[in-house]
Amino acid sequence: MAPALVWLTALMVVPCALVLALAFFRRGIYGGIEYTFTLENFGLVFDPLYAGIFLNSARIAGTAALIAVVIGYAAAYAIAAAPRRLQPVFLFFAVLPFWSNYLIRTYAWIVLLNREGLITQLLRWFGYTGEQPSMLYTEGAVIAGLVYNYLPFVILACYAPLSRLNPELAEASRDLGASALTTFRRVILPLTVPGIAAGAVFVFVLSIGNFVTPALLGGGRFQMIGNLVYDQFLTANDWPFGAALAMALIAIMLLVLMAQALAADRASGRAAEAKGDADG
Protein backbone atom coordinates (compact mmCIF):
# COMPACT_ATOMS: atom_id res chain seq x y z
CA MET A 1 0.00 0.00 0.00
CA ALA A 2 2.98 2.26 0.43
CA PRO A 3 3.40 3.21 -3.25
CA ALA A 4 -0.22 4.33 -3.48
CA LEU A 5 0.07 6.44 -0.33
CA VAL A 6 3.28 8.00 -1.61
CA TRP A 7 1.53 8.79 -4.91
CA LEU A 8 -1.44 10.41 -3.16
CA THR A 9 0.83 12.38 -0.86
CA ALA A 10 3.14 13.62 -3.58
CA LEU A 11 0.48 14.42 -6.16
CA MET A 12 -2.49 15.47 -4.05
CA VAL A 13 -1.55 16.44 -0.48
CA VAL A 14 1.61 18.36 -1.37
CA PRO A 15 0.08 20.23 -4.34
CA CYS A 16 -2.99 21.16 -2.28
CA ALA A 17 -0.77 22.37 0.56
CA LEU A 18 1.14 24.37 -2.03
CA VAL A 19 -2.05 26.07 -3.20
CA LEU A 20 -2.92 26.89 0.40
CA ALA A 21 0.52 28.46 0.86
CA LEU A 22 0.26 30.27 -2.47
CA ALA A 23 -2.86 32.03 -1.23
CA PHE A 24 -0.77 33.90 1.37
CA PHE A 25 1.72 35.32 -1.12
CA ARG A 26 1.56 38.40 -3.27
CA ARG A 27 1.20 38.56 -6.98
CA GLY A 28 4.37 39.77 -8.66
CA ILE A 29 4.34 42.82 -10.90
CA TYR A 30 4.78 40.76 -14.04
CA GLY A 31 2.36 38.03 -13.01
CA GLY A 32 4.83 35.89 -11.11
CA ILE A 33 4.69 35.25 -7.40
CA GLU A 34 6.32 37.49 -4.83
CA TYR A 35 7.19 35.62 -1.67
CA THR A 36 5.99 38.05 0.95
CA PHE A 37 3.30 37.10 3.41
CA THR A 38 -0.06 38.81 2.92
CA LEU A 39 -3.72 38.30 3.70
CA GLU A 40 -4.96 40.60 0.99
CA ASN A 41 -5.94 37.75 -1.36
CA PHE A 42 -8.50 36.62 1.18
CA GLY A 43 -9.59 40.23 1.65
CA LEU A 44 -10.14 40.44 -2.10
CA VAL A 45 -12.45 37.41 -1.94
CA PHE A 46 -14.81 39.57 0.13
CA ASP A 47 -14.56 42.50 -2.26
CA PRO A 48 -18.12 43.35 -3.40
CA LEU A 49 -17.29 42.40 -6.99
CA TYR A 50 -16.13 38.90 -6.10
CA ALA A 51 -18.48 38.42 -3.16
CA GLY A 52 -21.26 39.11 -5.67
CA ILE A 53 -19.99 36.29 -7.89
CA PHE A 54 -19.88 34.00 -4.85
CA LEU A 55 -23.47 34.83 -3.98
CA ASN A 56 -24.53 34.43 -7.59
CA SER A 57 -22.81 31.04 -7.80
CA ALA A 58 -24.43 29.97 -4.56
CA ARG A 59 -27.85 31.03 -5.85
CA ILE A 60 -27.44 29.17 -9.16
CA ALA A 61 -26.01 26.09 -7.44
CA GLY A 62 -28.76 26.22 -4.82
CA THR A 63 -31.50 26.47 -7.44
CA ALA A 64 -30.00 23.57 -9.36
CA ALA A 65 -29.77 21.50 -6.17
CA LEU A 66 -33.40 22.25 -5.27
CA ILE A 67 -34.76 21.34 -8.71
CA ALA A 68 -32.58 18.23 -8.93
CA VAL A 69 -33.79 17.06 -5.53
CA VAL A 70 -37.48 17.55 -6.39
CA ILE A 71 -37.17 15.66 -9.70
CA GLY A 72 -34.72 13.10 -8.32
CA TYR A 73 -36.83 12.34 -5.27
CA ALA A 74 -39.96 11.86 -7.36
CA ALA A 75 -38.03 9.57 -9.70
CA ALA A 76 -36.52 7.57 -6.85
CA TYR A 77 -39.96 7.28 -5.24
CA ALA A 78 -41.46 5.96 -8.47
CA ILE A 79 -38.59 3.50 -8.93
CA ALA A 80 -38.94 2.25 -5.34
CA ALA A 81 -42.68 1.74 -5.96
CA ALA A 82 -42.05 -0.32 -9.12
CA PRO A 83 -42.02 -4.15 -9.03
CA ARG A 84 -38.88 -5.45 -7.27
CA ARG A 85 -37.41 -7.15 -10.30
CA LEU A 86 -37.66 -3.98 -12.42
CA GLN A 87 -36.03 -1.69 -9.87
CA PRO A 88 -32.38 -2.56 -10.67
CA VAL A 89 -33.10 -2.08 -14.39
CA PHE A 90 -34.66 1.36 -13.87
CA LEU A 91 -31.82 2.34 -11.57
CA PHE A 92 -29.19 1.21 -14.04
CA PHE A 93 -30.73 3.26 -16.83
CA ALA A 94 -31.18 6.25 -14.54
CA VAL A 95 -27.47 6.24 -13.71
CA LEU A 96 -26.11 5.31 -17.15
CA PRO A 97 -26.04 8.87 -18.59
CA PHE A 98 -24.04 9.95 -15.54
CA TRP A 99 -21.16 7.77 -16.71
CA SER A 100 -20.93 9.32 -20.14
CA ASN A 101 -18.79 12.33 -20.89
CA TYR A 102 -19.76 15.52 -19.03
CA LEU A 103 -18.87 17.76 -21.98
CA ILE A 104 -21.01 15.69 -24.31
CA ARG A 105 -24.01 15.80 -21.98
CA THR A 106 -23.62 19.57 -21.81
CA TYR A 107 -23.21 19.83 -25.58
CA ALA A 108 -26.48 17.89 -25.97
CA TRP A 109 -28.20 20.87 -24.32
CA ILE A 110 -26.59 23.30 -26.77
CA VAL A 111 -28.06 21.19 -29.57
CA LEU A 112 -31.49 21.32 -27.90
CA LEU A 113 -31.54 24.97 -26.86
CA ASN A 114 -29.95 26.82 -29.77
CA ARG A 115 -32.06 29.08 -31.96
CA GLU A 116 -32.66 26.33 -34.52
CA GLY A 117 -32.82 23.56 -31.92
CA LEU A 118 -35.52 21.00 -31.23
CA ILE A 119 -37.33 23.17 -28.70
CA THR A 120 -37.62 26.12 -31.09
CA GLN A 121 -38.82 23.76 -33.81
CA LEU A 122 -41.42 22.27 -31.49
CA LEU A 123 -42.66 25.75 -30.63
CA ARG A 124 -42.96 26.54 -34.35
CA TRP A 125 -44.76 23.27 -34.97
CA PHE A 126 -47.29 24.29 -32.35
CA GLY A 127 -47.86 27.46 -34.33
CA TYR A 128 -45.54 29.85 -32.53
CA THR A 129 -44.28 32.36 -35.07
CA GLY A 130 -43.09 35.20 -32.88
CA GLU A 131 -39.57 36.19 -31.97
CA GLN A 132 -37.16 33.26 -31.63
CA PRO A 133 -36.76 32.76 -27.91
CA SER A 134 -33.13 32.81 -26.96
CA MET A 135 -32.76 29.98 -24.51
CA LEU A 136 -29.06 29.37 -24.80
CA TYR A 137 -26.70 31.61 -22.83
CA THR A 138 -29.22 32.27 -20.09
CA GLU A 139 -29.15 31.47 -16.41
CA GLY A 140 -31.97 28.99 -17.05
CA ALA A 141 -29.78 27.11 -19.52
CA VAL A 142 -26.95 26.91 -16.98
CA ILE A 143 -29.35 25.58 -14.32
CA ALA A 144 -30.90 23.07 -16.75
CA GLY A 145 -27.44 21.81 -17.66
CA LEU A 146 -26.43 21.39 -14.01
CA VAL A 147 -29.69 19.62 -13.09
CA TYR A 148 -29.37 17.33 -16.11
CA ASN A 149 -25.78 16.40 -15.38
CA TYR A 150 -26.19 15.65 -11.68
CA LEU A 151 -29.74 14.25 -11.55
CA PRO A 152 -28.65 10.57 -11.74
CA PHE A 153 -26.70 10.91 -8.51
CA VAL A 154 -29.68 12.46 -6.72
CA ILE A 155 -31.90 9.59 -7.88
CA LEU A 156 -29.36 7.13 -6.51
CA ALA A 157 -28.98 8.97 -3.19
CA CYS A 158 -32.76 9.21 -2.64
CA TYR A 159 -33.45 5.66 -3.77
CA ALA A 160 -31.23 4.12 -1.06
CA PRO A 161 -33.35 5.20 1.97
CA LEU A 162 -36.64 4.89 0.03
CA SER A 163 -35.99 1.26 -0.89
CA ARG A 164 -35.13 0.40 2.71
CA LEU A 165 -38.34 1.93 4.00
CA ASN A 166 -40.50 -0.54 5.85
CA PRO A 167 -43.94 -0.45 4.13
CA GLU A 168 -45.55 -1.33 7.46
CA LEU A 169 -44.66 2.12 8.78
CA ALA A 170 -46.76 3.85 6.13
CA GLU A 171 -49.56 1.32 6.65
CA ALA A 172 -49.51 1.89 10.41
CA SER A 173 -49.70 5.63 9.84
CA ARG A 174 -52.73 5.23 7.56
CA ASP A 175 -54.40 2.79 9.94
CA LEU A 176 -54.05 5.39 12.64
CA GLY A 177 -56.04 7.77 10.42
CA ALA A 178 -53.31 9.89 8.80
CA SER A 179 -53.96 11.10 5.26
CA ALA A 180 -51.57 10.13 2.47
CA LEU A 181 -50.07 13.62 2.59
CA THR A 182 -49.57 13.52 6.37
CA THR A 183 -48.05 10.04 6.12
CA PHE A 184 -45.62 11.30 3.52
CA ARG A 185 -44.78 14.46 5.42
CA ARG A 186 -44.50 12.94 8.89
CA VAL A 187 -43.26 9.40 8.22
CA ILE A 188 -41.68 8.90 4.80
CA LEU A 189 -39.99 12.28 4.33
CA PRO A 190 -38.18 12.40 7.72
CA LEU A 191 -36.86 8.86 7.20
CA THR A 192 -35.43 9.76 3.80
CA VAL A 193 -33.83 13.10 4.73
CA PRO A 194 -30.27 11.64 4.65
CA GLY A 195 -30.70 10.72 0.98
CA ILE A 196 -32.14 14.12 0.13
CA ALA A 197 -29.35 15.89 1.99
CA ALA A 198 -26.65 13.81 0.31
CA GLY A 199 -28.14 14.47 -3.13
CA ALA A 200 -28.58 18.20 -2.54
CA VAL A 201 -25.06 18.62 -1.17
CA PHE A 202 -23.59 16.73 -4.10
CA VAL A 203 -25.32 18.92 -6.68
CA PHE A 204 -24.55 22.12 -4.78
CA VAL A 205 -20.87 21.36 -4.27
CA LEU A 206 -20.24 20.22 -7.83
CA SER A 207 -22.25 23.10 -9.30
CA ILE A 208 -20.61 25.89 -7.34
CA GLY A 209 -17.14 24.85 -8.48
CA ASN A 210 -18.19 24.15 -12.06
CA PHE A 211 -16.66 26.12 -14.87
CA VAL A 212 -17.61 24.07 -17.93
CA THR A 213 -21.39 24.50 -17.78
CA PRO A 214 -21.37 28.28 -17.22
CA ALA A 215 -18.79 28.63 -20.00
CA LEU A 216 -20.70 26.52 -22.53
CA LEU A 217 -24.39 27.05 -21.66
CA GLY A 218 -24.01 30.50 -20.11
CA GLY A 219 -21.79 31.67 -22.95
CA GLY A 220 -19.36 33.17 -20.43
CA ARG A 221 -22.01 35.65 -19.29
CA PHE A 222 -22.58 33.91 -15.97
CA GLN A 223 -19.42 33.72 -13.97
CA MET A 224 -19.27 31.20 -11.21
CA ILE A 225 -16.48 30.54 -8.71
CA GLY A 226 -15.06 27.87 -10.99
CA ASN A 227 -14.76 30.36 -13.87
CA LEU A 228 -13.13 32.88 -11.56
CA VAL A 229 -10.48 30.36 -10.47
CA TYR A 230 -9.96 29.37 -14.10
CA ASP A 231 -9.43 33.01 -15.10
CA GLN A 232 -6.89 33.71 -12.36
CA PHE A 233 -4.79 30.74 -13.40
CA LEU A 234 -5.09 30.76 -17.16
CA THR A 235 -5.81 34.33 -18.23
CA ALA A 236 -5.34 36.95 -15.48
CA ASN A 237 -2.23 35.17 -14.21
CA ASP A 238 -2.88 36.03 -10.57
CA TRP A 239 -2.18 32.64 -9.01
CA PRO A 240 -2.19 33.78 -5.37
CA PHE A 241 -5.69 35.21 -5.74
CA GLY A 242 -6.81 32.12 -7.67
CA ALA A 243 -5.45 29.98 -4.84
CA ALA A 244 -7.37 32.04 -2.26
CA LEU A 245 -10.55 31.61 -4.31
CA ALA A 246 -9.97 27.83 -4.47
CA MET A 247 -9.50 27.76 -0.69
CA ALA A 248 -12.74 29.70 -0.25
CA LEU A 249 -14.42 27.12 -2.49
CA ILE A 250 -13.08 24.29 -0.33
CA ALA A 251 -14.22 26.13 2.82
CA ILE A 252 -17.78 26.47 1.45
CA MET A 253 -17.72 22.80 0.51
CA LEU A 254 -16.62 21.72 3.98
CA LEU A 255 -19.27 23.92 5.61
CA VAL A 256 -21.99 22.38 3.44
CA LEU A 257 -20.72 18.86 4.16
CA MET A 258 -20.74 19.60 7.89
CA ALA A 259 -24.30 20.90 7.68
CA GLN A 260 -25.24 17.71 5.85
CA ALA A 261 -23.65 15.51 8.54
CA LEU A 262 -25.59 17.48 11.15
CA ALA A 263 -28.87 17.10 9.23
CA ALA A 264 -28.27 13.37 8.81
CA ASP A 265 -27.52 13.04 12.52
CA ARG A 266 -30.70 14.82 13.54
CA ALA A 267 -32.70 12.86 10.99
CA SER A 268 -31.43 9.53 12.31
CA GLY A 269 -32.33 10.70 15.81
CA ARG A 270 -35.81 11.60 14.63
CA ALA A 271 -36.06 8.35 12.66
CA ALA A 272 -35.23 6.36 15.79
CA GLU A 273 -37.94 8.32 17.60
CA ALA A 274 -40.49 7.68 14.85
CA LYS A 275 -39.56 4.02 14.81
CA GLY A 276 -39.91 3.88 18.59
CA ASP A 277 -43.37 5.45 18.31
CA ALA A 278 -44.37 2.99 15.60
CA ASP A 279 -43.03 -0.01 17.49
CA GLY A 280 -44.60 1.12 20.76
Partner: peptide, 12 residues
Amino acid sequence: PDIVLAIALLSF
Protein backbone atom coordinates in the same frame (compact mmCIF):
# COMPACT_ATOMS: atom_id res chain seq x y z
CA PRO B 1 -13.44 19.54 -6.81
CA ASP B 2 -11.68 18.87 -10.14
CA ILE B 3 -10.79 22.52 -10.53
CA VAL B 4 -8.96 22.55 -7.20
CA LEU B 5 -6.90 19.43 -7.96
CA ALA B 6 -6.27 20.85 -11.44
CA ILE B 7 -4.81 24.17 -10.25
CA ALA B 8 -2.93 22.43 -7.42
CA LEU B 9 -1.18 20.14 -9.89
CA LEU B 10 -0.56 22.99 -12.33
CA SER B 11 1.11 25.03 -9.54
CA PHE B 12 3.06 21.99 -8.37
